[in-house]
Design a binder for these strands. Structure first.
Lengths: 151, 151
DNA sequence: CACGAATAAGTTGCGCACGACTTAATCGGG
DNA sequence: CCCGATTAAGTCGTGCGCAACTTATTCGTG
């Protein structure tokens, strides 16, 4: 038995050779791991990401939010409506530019931050990477994102 | 100026400290990069993954397909219906177990494989990783998936 | 200042993704 | 052999994610 495992060739069509699939599977698995934690906060995973941005910098526009998260207004607009309906934020047209909408946290939205503090720790534990592996993974993922976005 | 950059603490709520966000962003960016290529084949990205599995092993059940891709029947059933409507496969109840449905490629579905050969190469080029980085990324992503799935 | 181009947000349509549930067939212990 | 438990596939409802488009506002150049 000289070869029990095929050499993954450059243009393989085998699912398990595909980095893209490893990425897709990992992303969904991590999101699934977040789900029960975020359920307690009444948030979905994309809503949680929006809240992370707003806790960092309140009163930003939909456009700026989209730039941070790499999401279109067609995704964000309905999502923000749901967060507004849940009492976490308000949306108001900006006086200085009526095209723009400022997203502002309510007291409730700002307060949720404290309850969210434990979430990244719990997820970090679940991922079980060493600090070095974590940093390396982030670095590689950002490199992929940068290379794949644009030319 | 002793510190121009904050040390990302264990429980940071900053978006850019989150590995989960790097993962989510990379996954969507890669899928977006696939889109124009897959459009020419008349496939979405999840449909392409299903076809990868079927090109590897034809005539498998929905359950086996779900195990390979980590997807529920509630996701696969409608997706497979669309692929059937597009003439790429057929679904037929198995005689030996009437609960199970065998997915079989049509001639057209099998033939599409040749047109798909160039896709992984093009994506590999776009990601722009060295073979070592590619292997390392896959390894880390699988580790994350494994750790996060289960206990 | 006028007016076409650009920009911001939102709407619509479609295809995932998944939880909760349903239906139908098979399994397995008493 | 029967009947409750399990299993396979599918339906339904909700929330993304994005392309294509619309509406309203602002910009910029003649």
């Amino acid at each position: 038995m000289s070869r029990t495992q095929a050499e993954p060739s450059e243009g393989s069509l085998l699912l398990d050779d595909q980095l893209c699939f490893a990425l897709y599977a990992a992303s969904r698995a991590v999101t699934a791991r977040y789900r029960p934690l975020l359920d307690e906060l009444g948030l979905t995973y994309p809503q949680y990401l929006v809240m992370l941005v707003l806790w960092e910098q309140d009163s930003i526009s939909v456009r700026e939010l989209g730039a941070s998260l790499q999401l279109e207004s067609s995704t964000l607009s309905p999502l923000l409506k749901r967060l507004e309906a849940n009492g976490l934020l308000r949306r108001e047209r900006r006086a200085e530019d009526e095209r723009s909408v400022a997203i502002r946290l309510t007291g409730e939205g700002a307060a949720l931050r404290e309850r969210a503090r434990s979430v990244p720790v719990a997820i970090g534990d679940a991922m079980g990477l060493t600090p070095e592996q974590d940093a390396l993974a982030k670095q590689l993922l950002r490199l992929i994102t940068a290379n794949v976005t644009d030319g």
